[in-house]
């Protein structure tokens, strides 16, 4: 079952969209609940859907041959999960719910089609995804700089 427009409007980046645009995104958005430890997607999976985390913690992990599976990032309330869906690329990390988690799942193929048809939606969705990716890039740099390490 798809969600109501007002559910989407609670996400900051979407609140400014006109009602009809929100409604068309809502029409391709589904709410999902996952128990703790549920695997949401796996590194290397074929291109999937885009998620928004309503509530809960999701851990992204990467396989590191010889070192096991390494957690690289934790995502939480209000954050975008699975941005690679917008590029129609295979998953670059695995996602697992750490807690009971409520997600909004956006049908990525349908969303991309909507983005093409309605530039208001297209611009907004890409702007949100771009901001998320930019933040993660910046945060990854700080992780790489090892700012808490001793010299």
């Amino acid at each position: 079952m798809t969600v109501e427009s007002h559910t989407l409007a609670s996400f900051p980046g979407l609140a400014t969209l006109p009602a009809d645009a929100l409604a068309s995104i809502a029409a391709l958005t589904f709410e999902e609940r996952h128990r703790a430890d549920a695997l949401l997607f796996n590194e290397g999976d074929a291109p999937g859907d885009l998620y928004w985390i309503v509530r809960g913690h999701v851990q992204l992990t990467q396989r590191f041959e010889g070192r096991g599976t390494t957690a690289v990032l934790t995502l939480s309330d209000g954050e975008l999960l699975g941005w690679s869906a917008l590029l129609r690329r295979p998953r670059v990390a695995s996602a697992r719910a750490l807690t009971e988690t409520v997600l909004l799942r956006l049908d990525a193929s349908a969303l991309l089609e909507l983005c093409e048809q309605d530039p208001r939606v297209g611009y907004r969705v890409m702007a949100i995804a771009f901001e998320e990716v930019a933040d993660r890039l910046h945060a990854t740099r700080l992780q790489l700089l090892d700012v808490f390490g001793s010299r």
Binding site: H57, Q59, L60, T74, E79, L98, A139, Q143, V147
Partner: peptide, 23 residues
């Protein structure tokens, strides 16, 4: 609490501390 680099079995947050403020 968040850590930049998780160890095996760590179920807490991973990521730089500034991301905690953002969310």
């Amino acid at each position: 609490v968040t850590v930049d680099h998780a160890s095996p079995g760590w179920r807490g947050h991973v990521g730089v501390v500034t991301r905690l403020l953002r969310r």
